[in-house]
Design a protein around this nucleic acid. Structure first.
Lengths: 133, 133
DNA sequence: TTGCTCCTCACGTCACGTGAGGTGGC
DNA sequence: TTGCTCCTCACGTCACGTGAGGTGGC
């Protein structure tokens, strides 16, 4: 039995297991436009490019940072402010934080979250391509 | 009529309006241990220090960054990792991000959020004291 | 009396899925 | 037949409050 379409596209179940989520979640994300099938099979099955699984995994990481699906969707659509300017601001501000004494809980918590976000940003910048949907 | 306790402490309604939230919210946060009355009046009214209002305003800002009340509570309790180490990591990673070309939407969105978090961290470091609860 | 507060129990809301169930392709 | 998929409508869950209602202090 040919379980995989010969063109390398994946059906929903394959995308789901590759991304580590349920097919219902892939279905849900698709309905929100967070991922989009590259094609439909003759039998109306949605066919995704393999990169869709990475995209879904990325969405899950972003959600883990408290970023809502609406914001993620907007970002994926390419709506954005100026990242470079913001990065300069961060560069300027970090020494101020470092100059402070051993941070108390809140500062540490906020910093930890910012750190996790930067890590995610680095992953995006380094690995996953601009994702042509 | 003496609306304010003579010792400078505030009743729940005063804290609420100073923080820009409802008394129910102050009540709720108090029940979670996010703020704590400094005393009780003879009639069992909760009496808060004025700084409690700032604390509540801070909690609201943190919530705006997607940080849950449980995490905030833990942070306020002083549980924390090593902020300085994380700040060094950020310092190291930022140039990598800046070296990239004009970021696409996702990167910009994540960076924006990190930026907002750092701003909040700076506010904490600069202004609001370690808050002896 | 008026407007505040206390406390408790239940309900509301929003985001994020998830279940179920009837469908057709493989 | 089996296990996949499609689609839709409704339900579940968790976090975060909010409403209401009976209480006593001011």
């Amino acid at each position: 039995v040919a379980l995989v379409p010969s063109d390398g596209l994946l059906r929903i179940g394959e995308v789901a297991s590759a991304a580590g989520v349920s097919t219902r979640t892939v279905d849900f994300y698709t309905s929100l436009g967070l991922v989009e099938p590259a094609a439909r099979s003759a039998g109306n099955y949605r066919l995704y490019e393999p990169v869709a699984a990475e995209r879904i995994a990325l969405i899950q990481r972003l959600e883990g940072h408290g970023i809502g699906l609406d914001d993620i969707a907007a970002a994926l659509r390419g709506e954005a402010g100026s990242a470079p300017r913001r990065l300069e601001d961060l560069q300027r501000d970090l020494p101020v934080l470092q100059a402070g004494d051993d941070a108390h809980g809140l500062l540490a918590a906020v910093t930890a979250r910012a750190h996790a976000l930067i890590s995610t940003a680095l992953d995006i910048a380094a690995g996953l391509p601009p994702a042509p949907l």
